[in-house]
Amino acid sequence: MKQFSLFIILLLTLSISWGYFSENSDKSEVKKLVLTGSSTVAPLLAEIAKRFESLNPNVRIDVQTGGSSRGINDVRARVSDIGMASRSLRLSESELFSFNIALDGISIIVNNTNPVTSLDKQQIIDIYKGKIVNWQQLGGQDATIIVVNKAEGRSTLELFLHYFGLQNTELKPHVIIGDNQQGIKTVAGNPHAIGYVSVGSAEYEAGHQVAIKLLPLDGIIASVENVRNQTFPLSRPLNLITQQQPTGIIKDFIAYASSEQVADLIKSQYFVPVAH
């Protein structure tokens, strides 16, 4: 019985002190921002948010991933303050506000032992549809083409299909991958594979002795440079989305994220800052 009452006293003390402390933190007016959306944009925004927090100690920023569509749905449902999307707004989403903070390009990659140096749009379509099945038909070695595709729901896949005018149901892939790294590892480990990943990460890995090479598209070299000057055709904007014209802390944060001050963070994630 004695032990029991001791326990009750302990519980009471805990609950009282809990109430005391949580009341205290309310007084210091911490502002909270919630960001959700594209897993392509989220790691970048997490870094930007960290820097923004250190400049504004009374702001707490929570960054969560879940895809561009979730970012847009959450902003609409007012679950989050800012959405992150690795694509432009669709017509059905035109009531929202979008702010471009960086660019990302998709590059077709093959193993660097592959003698093929360029493919045109139609050839890539035929490869992915399974009409061209051997590298010999494209001037390469006599070997079956290993087609690497992205998993359903990813915005990279969406952009790829949209650009080449394809339906996912008509593709004949041999391997399906999740993130960019898995795609790069797969192509680097297989001399006859073809895949597509973000230009930033492909250019970085190719420059660090990973056995892949980036193929030009429509005669334009796939490089961060060409994504920045918007000549590379297969590219996408990385956007922040809000429900209303931003005000207060949301406005400050978006202004900061599109400023010159975060260009180094954008480059360190292999994305391309927008021209200022």
Binding site: S39, G66, G67, A151, E152, G153, R154, I176
Partner: peptide
């Protein structure tokens, strides 16, 4: 589940 859950909405 692991490949698609992070990007799935609605019926998917």
């Amino acid at each position: 589940i692991a490949l698609e859950m992070a990007y799935a909405m609605g019926d998917h």
